[in-house]
Nucleic acid binder design. Structure first.
Lengths: 218, 218
DNA sequence: TAGATTGTTAATCGATTAACAATC
DNA sequence: TAGATTGTTAATCGATTAACAATC
């Protein structure tokens, strides 16, 4: 009765990208798109696009293709954009501040509601309309303000402790920028964790450059 | 004669994570580790660890396991850590500055050498020991200073133009933070591109939270 | 109706896991 | 030598691609 056919993470990771392309088509006033046309633009196979979209429903029409407006609305709804997530940031250092000021998140249904730190020098400072609060006021804040996601922009040494504190408050999503893995948080608290291991990603780039030079050059 | 068995990207993406764990073992003075012990710590199968490491060589020893110091050195070498990459940043906005100030990159062999912008208000400003230069001086800078990687921290509207400009200068790696795909750059210039689509990643988190609430709660 | 394009099943490909012989 | 654990081959699993009947 619940139709849970468990969609694979590979498909889910492609959704935001579909959303970007469909939004662009919509903004350019393009009314319909076929899987073939979209495959050309996105550099995917048409087959994969049809498979992916069909995980969520038959949004297309045989002989016609996909109505861009319909598809845009459907993907937005799948991604939960219609009702926004409230986001707090833990750590008002360089990365925390950069995220707080990043305007794109708003457009995608993420609302920045609070930022916390333990450093007295930044507490009270205004960042994108929100005052940095002391980390010890976190619990009170979350009790009074619906909070969906906490962004961890803190050194890895404190990451685990803060993650447990945040998860214990019933916050359902953790966006982890501290370069460490948050073991057992998902299992223990049922909190969802997404990691942004920037250094890891940069190292992959480094590896690929080395390969390129080894193979391409000589 | 070149032993190019083409290592899959899935394996390469795990390398930095292996490196983190091995570094930790090394710092804790642990001399040896078996694939089983590592699998427990990293939450991977021992089989996968052995397969992965064997793509690059037989670093272990039957009946013993892996010598941590050896393994650390080998992975570092695979990732090109021994000889550093010079990195410039294009765009001195919030994200560009956060990256410029991020200390972890240094430890992993990435050296911040320049930062460029077109906004007169930030040009000349000192960021982590480097002065923001005008984007028009980019070409001269690269001619005089070996540059391996350019980080794009600019709005998506300018991303493609700047990417082509950077690639045309012979810079081999592009780390793209502008939320757009840099079509054809790899093919046309032979430049390696790694994308950090932060908003995409955040949207995946949003999706997973929605699923959690739908399935877990009722 | 004829043409186009989806939705969906089947075939292929690649990545992960299991098993075990080699060997320290 | 006996025990442990790798390196490596084979089996399994899952994701992508191809094919085509359904249908607009």
């Amino acid at each position: 009765m619940d139709g849970n056919k468990k969609i694979s993470i590979a498909v889910i990771k492609r959704l935001p990208r579909y959303y970007r392309y469909i939004t662009e088509l919509l903004e350019n006033g393009i009314a319909k798109v076929s899987s073939q046309e979209l495959s050309r633009r996105m550099n995917l196979t048409a087959s994969q696009i049809r498979q992916d979209l069909n995980c969520f429903g038959g949004f297309g029409q045989q002989g016609y293709g996909y109505n861009v407006e319909v598809l845009h609305k459907e993907i937005a709804s799948i991604l939960g954009i219609p009702d926004p997530f409230n986001v707090i940031i833990i750590g008002a250092g360089n990365m925390g501040q950069a995220i707080a000021k990043y305007e794109n998140f708003n457009k995608r249904g993420f609302v920045f509601t609070g930022i916390f730190d333990k450093n007295p020098n930044v507490i009270g400072q205004d960042i994108n309309g929100v005052k940095v609060a002391h980390i010890d006021t976190l619990e009170d804040f979350v009790k009074e303000n619906k909070t969906d996601i906490a962004v961890l922009c803190i050194p890895k040494e404190n990451a685990m402790e803060i993650a447990r504190r945040v998860a214990a408050l019933g916050i359902h999503g953790l966006w982890n920028f501290s370069s460490t893995d948050l073991h057992n948080i998902e299992e223990e608290f049922g909190t969802v964790v997404e990691n942004v291991h920037l250094t890891d990603n940069l190292m992959v780039l480094g590896y690929r450059i080395s390969e390129l030079r080894k193979n391409g050059k000589n």
